[in-house]
């Protein structure tokens, strides 16, 4: 087991949920990476925002790229080096606002890399503006009247776009660990959304208590209709119950194997 820690000083807020994500990711990768040779077979990409700092905290190659451009960057790496295990990290601003066009097409391409979206439903590093997944009524300095438009449901979007692995977890290291392990076994694009409250600008409104594990129900993750129904249970606006786990998994041709 290799230590993937770096000497970089961690600048997330104390008790930030990003620590949970980092811990979960580290646990999975440190178990897989046993040597320097192994380490060279992995690459990570992050965008811009609080999530992106994870790039400095993992001793892995890759790029901390521009806002919204994580996905094409991962794709380009996989095209050139199909043997690399590539994991992309984004925030909700990266994934659903600035880089939305890439998200839809990446789901369609089905390149064999993994994608973790740290969704805190707010632009945190720019001190609290709404994102496409912010709930109605959210108020901030740039939107004193409150958000009026309903949020996007990324799980439904990914299902509709043809993603072959669609999952959502809460920002708890064990949940992250579990789902990333499954995603790495999946051959194709894996979309993982992590519901990650921002302790400063978008505190947990009771998400954790409302979540329930799909794995503990009779949910058939190969059934698209069931996945769609489960996706509709939480609209990112009103909290009733929040299913977490793998919504959908299927097999499709992998981009870098079919296009060359």
């Amino acid at each position: 087991m290799t230590n993937l820690s770096t000497s970089a000083k961690i600048t997330w807020c104390p008790k930030c949920y990003n620590f949970q994500i980092l811990e979960g990711v580290k646990k999975v990768l440190e178990r897989k990476i046993k040597s320097e040779k192994d380490r060279q077979k992995y690459a990570i990409v992050s965008g811009i925002g609080c999530h992106a700092k994870i790039f400095d905290y993992l001793n892995l190659n890759g790029i901390n790229t521009l806002h919204g451009r994580v996905l094409p960057m991962c794709l380009g790496m996989k095209i050139a080096r199909p043997d690399l295990t590539v994991i992309g990290f984004s925030g909700d601003g990266d994934a659903y606002a600035e880089g939305m066009e890439h998200l839809i097409h990446t789901a369609r391409y089905n390149s064999n890399f993994k994608y973790i979206v740290h969704n805190n439903q707010v632009f945190a590093l720019t001190v609290g503006q709404p994102t496409p997944t912010t709930e109605i009524g959210f108020k901030g300095k740039t939107i004193p009247q409150g958000v009026k438009l309903p949020p996007l449901n990324p799980i439904k979007l990914m299902l509709a776009s043809g993603a072959t692995f669609v999952a959502r977890v809460f920002a708890d290291s064990k949940q992250v660990e579990y789902v990333l392990k499954q995603a790495l076994k999946h051959k194709g694009f894996a979309f993982i959304e992590v519901l990650q409250p921002c302790i400063i600008f978008h505190p947990d409104a009771g998400y954790k208590e409302k979540t329930y594990s799909l794995e503990k129900t009779k949910h058939d993750k190969s059934n698209f209709r069931q996945a769609w129904k489960k996706a509709e249970e939480f609209d990112y606006n009103t909290i009733k119950k929040i299913p977490v786990g793998i919504f959908y998994q299927t097999k499709k041709p992998v981009f870098e194997e079919v296009v060359k």
Partner: peptide, 21 residues
């Protein structure tokens, strides 16, 4: 190999992804 992607933004960023390998 040649690739057409969804737009020029994806094009240049995927190119960077390939170049850094």
């Amino acid at each position: 190999y040649t690739f057409e992607l969804e737009n020029e933004v994806a094009v240049i960023n995927a190119a960077v992804g390939s170049s850094i390998t």
